[in-house]
Design a protein around this nucleic acid. Sequence first.
DNA 1: GCATGATCATGC
DNA 2: GCATGATCATGC
Length: 494
Amino acid sequence: MKLFDYNDGDLQSVLHYTEALLEKRFEEIIAEYQESIYKTYSDFQLNTVSEVSDKPISMKSKGQYGNYIEKYFYGYNPNSDSAADFDKIGVELKVTPFKVNKNGTISAKERLVLTILNYMEENLDDFYSTHLWEKCSKILLLFYNGLIPDTTMADYVIEKAFLYEWFEEDMPTILEDYKRITDKIKAGKAHELSESDGNYLSTCTKGAGKGKDFRKQPYSDEPAKQRAWELKSSYMTYLINNKIFNQEEQESVVATARGENKSFTDIISEKILAYKGQCADELYAKFDTNPKSKNRNNLLIRKMLGITGDLDKTQEFQKANMNLRVIRVNKDGLPKEDSPFKVYDFKELASNSMWEESQPYLEIYNKRFLFVIFREVESKVFVLDGVKFWGFPDRLLDEVKRVWTETRNILNEGVQLTVKDNKVSTNFPQSRVNKILFTKLHASNTYNEVEPGVFVGKGKVSDTNELPDGRKITKHSFWLPKKFIKEVLDGKWD
DNA sequence: GCATGATCATGC
DNA sequence: GCATGATCATGC
């Protein structure tokens, strides 16, 4: 086989050539390149033999893998301009990693960074007139396993190739994401953009000293971090599982409104708000839902939407990494209760200092939320009042990280337990001080080892988790304070 | 049997 | 009145 034996003006030819890349270790690609008499695609076309002194390639620069594939397999130098890589056929090439998790499932290892969002020059009104679309309307995705222990770049293998042409069923949601993002820029708030702005399409910081590279924005003097368009990692995970590795498709919210060409958020809002003003007890009865069931609200919402399984498991919630939370508020709009997350493992929390692997990152900061609000109109009578989609804004990142760090420090230094009137209190971050995120217990009953072997509380060992120092105390989780949730529902943190 | 969504109740 | 510590209860 001769290298660069393809026609860059012919999509089928490029795809066919790409097949020669699959299942080959990077080392072999390099060997073939070095044996080839041509070193670039244009030399191949012109039949001129290039004089290239090939220094050995360092297998340590894993971040260069994508660029190296372009250079050593396709034979062109990576460009960073707005044109697509194969500009004659408008195909952009992206090399992107997946990972196999401990439980055997496959996820995207990263978001897919598309192209820089130039605030001053990007078209803010028409998605199909953007630089983004010009460059990325067709993307040849090349997937490799980026998380095999004890390997170098020499061992990397492109396992799958996929021509991504933006799925029709996702476009209403992507256009809505585009509008939400560009509306912020038009409002002079480019500096408030967050990765959680988008359900599928979003923006991430990009450039030298990630997040420290500031750019001008058109409608404000405030400098804004340089950002790039991206497809979120949850979206990529869905793509990998269902389009690349062909796992069973999950239920779809969009499919329940076939042909309507609406974003899934609009479909959900309309279906739920059709019952606005009806009281919860009526709705439980109408939808044949046990009002005592702990997941009665999940059941109610899924029945309103006409799906049979868990809403969080639908295609759209998976792609957007979205979580349903039903909130009961009083007449003033203050939630009745704080809102909990899953119980965390004290030892895991204490020992893992990787922010992007932490529960506050994965379950809170990186999620989007669908809040369904029931308002108390008279004592104990709650009426369906509204829905709100929301993601944690980047400007709260430092605070979430601070609470996480403080909780970890307390665990590592030894939790202080105080017993008073047979009640046990800890020195974890409490909601009185921590206005965004705090920690409190979350179990069937309390059970705390106040002295070695001496327990206080009516619970049992299964209500506890072990601390790093070996004591067992009641399980804890992170919670969002109700006052903060009120601010979110009021739009303060959009 | 326990995880988890939901909610209670005391005391400051 | 509200935060904090505590507990409930179904369904997987």
